[in-house]
């Protein structure tokens, strides 16, 4: 049994159904994703079928089931970003990274996600890469921004 998952479970001694989501959130904060093994362990602890837990986790946008890439790219796709051209930026990102939102590149370098709104509409469209923000992004800038991470990652 994975010791780290166990530590998290121990924080929820009651083991009731309503602690399921906080447990999954803690595991994802720690591991970056929900592994099959973790889901099975949580199921055993809460006495729930792991299929049911998987069903719940897939319902919510927060949970992911594979490790995130080395560089996690998040594009804001709120209404304001959309009217200022986030759709084109998205297409360009998909083309450049060759993945769709929610996926990770095969070499594990990049993962890509959409966010409903980051709360900085005055700087739209914007991308967040590993917590760093790139604002007022135009489709033409995408290549350069991504390349800067490829180079930075190899150093």
């Amino acid at each position: 049994m994975d010791g780290k998952t166990n530590d998290i479970l121990r924080k929820y001694p009651k083991g009731s159904r309503d602690s399921l989501i906080p447990i999954l959130q803690d595991i994802q904060d720690q591991d970056g994703y929900l592994s099959e093994q973790a889901l099975v362990e949580v199921g055993r602890y809460l006495d729930l079928p792991s299929g049911k837990i998987y069903g719940l986790a897939t319902f919510y946008n927060q949970f992911r089931f594979g490790p995130p890439g080395q560089h996690h790219v998040c594009l804001c796709h709120g209404t304001s970003c959309h009217v200022t051209g986030a759709g084109d930026v998205r297409k360009e990102l998909e083309k450049k990274l060759r993945i769709k939102p929610g996926e990770t590149t095969r070499d594990g370098k990049f993962s890509f996600e959409l966010s409903a709104c980051m709360g900085a509409c005055h700087l739209s469209p914007l991308i967040r890469v590993n917590g760093r923000y790139h604002t007022g992004v135009k489709p033409g800038d995408v290549k350069e921004i991504m390349d800067s991470y490829i180079e930075g990652g190899e150093e």
Partner: peptide, 11 residues
């Protein structure tokens, strides 16, 4: 608040 374009509650 998950509305795209709404972040008043957050602020």
């Amino acid at each position: 608040e998950s509305d795209p374009g709404g972040f008043a509650n957050r602020a």
